[in-house]
Simulated scan of single mutants.
Amino acid sequence: MALLNFSRPADYLDAAREMADSGRPTLARLLAEEAADRTTDPTEAARIRTEFTGNSLRQEG
């Protein structure tokens, strides 16, 4: 099994898509939110968030 390295927004986005494809929408959404947070372009961040539907499940604070 390969060790995953999450150092770029694209790494989180790839993992989010993989989780969505395997029927794990909650984990997919969390990974997509992390990808969006790490993206410097606000337009791209918004696009990422709309690709993965559902409410945010993060607990802030």
Rank of each mutant, 00 (worst) to 15 (best):
M1F: 15
M1L: 13
M1E: 14
A2T: 14
A2E: 15
L3M: 15
L4R: 14
S7K: 05
R8P: 02
P9V: 10
P9H: 11
A10Y: 05
A10S: 13
A10P: 00
Y12L: 04
Y12W: 15
L13E: 10
L13C: 05
L13R: 12
D14C: 04
D14G: 09
A15P: 01
A15Q: 11
A15I: 06
A15R: 08
A16I: 10
A16W: 05
A16V: 08
R17M: 08
R17F: 11
R17D: 08
E18S: 13
E18Y: 11
E18C: 11
A20V: 04
A20F: 08
D21R: 14
S22F: 14
S22P: 03
G23L: 05
G23M: 09
R24V: 10
R24I: 10
P25V: 14
P25L: 12
P25N: 11
T26R: 12
T26Q: 13
T26V: 15
L27R: 10
L27M: 15
L27N: 11
L27Y: 08
L27F: 06
A28G: 07
A28Q: 02
A28V: 03
R29K: 15
R29I: 10
R29M: 07
R29P: 05
L30I: 12
L30C: 04
L31C: 04
L31T: 02
A32V: 05
A32W: 03
E34P: 00
E34M: 10
A35F: 02
A35E: 03
A36K: 02
D37M: 06
R38H: 04
T39N: 03
T39C: 09
T39K: 00
T39H: 00
T40I: 06
D41A: 09
P42M: 07
P42A: 07
P42V: 08
T43W: 01
T43C: 00
E44G: 00
E44Q: 14
A45R: 02
A45Q: 07
A45N: 05
A46K: 09
A46I: 01
R47L: 05
I48Y: 02
R49W: 08
R49G: 07
T50C: 01
E51I: 01
E51T: 09
F52P: 04
G54Y: 10
G54K: 11
G54D: 10
S56R: 07
S56G: 06
R58D: 03
R58G: 01
R58M: 07
R58S: 10
R58C: 01
Q59D: 10
Q59H: 09
E60Q: 08
E60F: 15
G61M: 09
G61T: 12
